[in-house]
Design a binder for these strands. Structure first.
Ligand SMILES: NC(=O)c1ccc[n+]([C@@H]2O[C@H](COP(=O)([O-])OP(=O)(O)OC[C@H]3O[C@@H](n4cnc5c(N)ncnc54)[C@H](O)[C@@H]3O)[C@@H](O)[C@H]2O)c1
Ligand SMILES: NC(=O)c1ccc[n+]([C@@H]2O[C@H](COP(=O)([O-])OP(=O)(O)OC[C@H]3O[C@@H](n4cnc5c(N)ncnc54)[C@H](O)[C@@H]3O)[C@@H](O)[C@H]2O)c1
Lengths: 217, 217
DNA sequence: AAGCAGTTGTTAATATATTAACTATAATGT
DNA sequence: ACATTATAGTTAATATATTAACAACTGCTT
């Protein structure tokens, strides 16, 4: 019987970490690993590791453990890395350029096909051989090209409008760096990278001891 | 009695979002808001909002709701934004420069005091008036200056070594962009921004419907 | 001034996530 | 071949997080 329980985000967010640690094991020529050993490296409990993996299949073998290479490939497949992805970046500012310049994403199967901006000073420039195009042509471009993921790097004010254009033209995944919660239909997936929020959790924790001491109930 | 229960990260990660929405309300001249109204905007349940806030104090008033400005300030204080922070960036590449160029952090009280790199081509250049220094002088610099937060933007291979230098010289908070789990003593707080992991959760979700259908139990 | 509607703080119930315990099985050594 | 050990998969127990319920209180209306 197929089993369509949806996997919780808590589990999903651990998967890339398994993937990363398994790659490290491969590069150290480790062939097999038990949940217990992996537990000690990765910092999850052995039980959690077995639970997590079992959501997706029986990848291990009793008395033996997991074959590192096979598990790495399986998790890669679960994460969708058996496919390749066409991306575009909208907003060629600080973050947009940083992402465009990062070469490692292509190793994972991501190909950035275009960059869009509205600033005439940027339009026409190239980043790693990809020209920055006028955002005016975004809709047109989307109609002619099959884009899987939109990487949204514009200021907050423009983010929803760009999102609407992306969604209207068939993009179903958005990696969003703007500090806003985008409105999209149910079939579109969004992953937010809210850097300021991330930074504020750090200052929270820096001050927490003092803070909790001061709270009187 | 003071009450030192430690607040769960689930709660802490929601706090910056409250802060952001409250600022938006302020800029829309909204004076007061109930947990129910806020719930509709922010997308948490009203119950959760009241629970979250009550961890830190009695900020609302029955029959009235919350005073927006006051709550905004309270949450700012909880997040440590009543203090200011000196930061340094280590690694002046794509991400390091993107962060250095971003002007909004200073509005929140973060002052980037220096940038370090080991690439001679970068050393001496300036980003928003801050010179890029030779990382050789990092330790020396830390001994002479009071730095609250290290922003780690080097490649993975160098990240632990830089971390050790930071920690050894009194830095107790690290905002880490390198794809590695840093080892630090208990008193040091780390916030990871693992961009590749974030992107992989997106591809996971793009493929999830097909994936779960294929899993046979 | 009294009563009603609205809303919090708080406690209780439920749901979810994590950890532990157990069972079945495979690998290994004698 | 058999016994022993290791270890996954799975079920059960526990812990955590979320949601719901409700009593206490406030502000507003009449
Ligand atoms: N850089 C950071 O460290 C940082 C930190 C936190 C949040 N963010 C967020 O990330 C996003 C990008 O930040 P950034 O620092 O790269 O900003 P940036 O100003 O450097 O870049 C934004 C780019 O978007 C372009 N743009 C504006 N409107 C556009 C439109 N309609 N279509 C296409 N392009 C458009 C601008 O011309 C600019 O080049 C912002 O929303 C910002 O709030 C950035
Ligand atoms: N740019 C991205 O989109 C992206 C995505 C995912 C992860 N990351 C991670 O973020 C980190 C930075 O990425 P990037 O794209 O900015 O890389 P980058 O190569 O552009 O920049 C790294 C910088 O660190 C400097 N450096 C190297 N060793 C150093 C040392 N010991 N001390 C000081 N500086 C040193 C290099 O000279 C370089 O300027 C990396 O760990 C990378 O894996 C980046």
């Amino acid at each position: 019987m197929s089993d369509r329980r949806q996997i919780s985000m808590a589990v999903v967010r651990r998967l890339p970490k398994y993937h990363r640690y398994l790659l490290e094991l491969i590069s150290n020529d480790v062939d097999r690993i038990s949940s217990k050993e992996l537990s000690e490296k990765i910092g999850f409990t052995a039980s959690q590791i077995r639970q997590d993996l079992n959501n997706f299949g029986d990848f291990g073998q009793q008395g033996y453990g997991y074959n590192v290479k096979e598990l790495y490939n399986q998790i890669g497949n679960i994460l969708g890395l058996n496919e390749t992805y066409n991306t575009i970046i909208i907003g060629a500012g600080n973050i947009g350029q940083a992402i465009a310049n990062y070469s490692n994403f292509s190793k994972l199967g991501f190909t950035n096909q275009a960059i869009f901006d509205k600033n005439p000073k940027l339009i026409g420039l190239k980043i790693r051989d990809i020209a920055i195009l006028d955002v005016e042509f975004l809709e047109d471009y989307l109609k002619k090209n099959n884009i899987d993921i939109g990487i949204l790097c514009t200021p907050r004010e423009q983010a929803q409008e760009i999102t609407d254009t992306l969604v209207k033209n068939g993009v179903t995944a958005i990696w969003n760096f703007a500090p806003i919660d985008l409105q999209v239909p149910d079939n579109v997936v969004i992953e937010n990278v809210h850097l300021s929020e991330s930074l504020l959790t750090l200052t929270y924790r820096l001050n927490e001891p003092k803070l909790l001491h001061d709270i009187k109930k």
